[in-house]
Amino acid sequence: MSTLLRCDNLCFTYGKGTPFEKDAVKNVSLDIRKGEVIGVIGHTGSGKSTLMQMLNGLIKPTSGAVYLEDADINADKSKLRDVRFRVGLVFQYPENQLFEETVRKDISFGPRNMGLPEDAIKERVKRAAEFAGLKSELLDRSPFDLSGGEKRRAAIAGVIAMDPEILILDEPTAGLDPMGRDVLLSQIEAYHNARNNTVLLVSHSMEDIASIADRVLVMNKGECVMFDTTQSVFSRSAELEAMGLRVPQITKITTELRKRGVPLSEGILTVEQAFDEIRAILKKEGRI
């Protein structure tokens, strides 16, 4: 897979030159490849939100650079908007940004800003709504009449409609109930599979990350402390816990059992995998 987005020694300091000066992001260098799903974890204030906003040029790094296909995104200010169309960012609680009279108009806000012709906009709205799981009869309703979960999906569709090569979602499942969360995650996964674009998912839910990510980026105190496959990151549970982060409960259980001598694989991420391995052991011993 080829590198799509590259961060080179990225730093950002809030309130530079004031008594409130604070390093939000320190020397972050990383490569993001085309078509991968990256989970981003770290607790509030670890710099992950700042980092995400640097990736689409909303925040300009104090030093270092972001390269989108080898072009420095901050080199030409007039091209920044085009970068934002290619690197789509869905903020936390995105339903708070809905503003148009109808859902359709709201979703077309992005494509219209791109200067697309009307029929292309129409096509994009339709496709984005489908990906986000919005029923077509909702498109002509006011976004303020939708339920909480529908509003969230409408807002996400508003970014998907720009057809970004990289889609960044900042805590897309926050505040949803378990069912809403599962549905949204599977939609994101389906969208990724259909478009083969790159997805960055910021989440506090390790279970969500474990179920969807190929690689996991761990931020702590403004630094990127781990960036590796999901399995290897979650098998370093002791280090994560020292940073105040958890691992999925199932990973914690199987890691501990493995430590006590049960022959399980390292970094088990799902209940299904744990169940299969334990059942196999029990079968072999003739216990079930």
Binding site: R84, F85, V90, F91, Q97, F99, G110, N113, V159, M162
Partner: peptide
């Protein structure tokens, strides 16, 4: 503002009327 900018909202250029119009996506939410 950041969220609308991420969808390509342009608040820095254009004449006065255009700029006032650009405030709608911010003021309504």
């Amino acid at each position: 503002m950041s969220a609308q900018k991420a969808r390509g909202a342009d608040m820095e250029s254009g004449n006065l009327i255009k700029r006032i119009k650009a405030l709608v996506p911010i003021l309504i939410p």
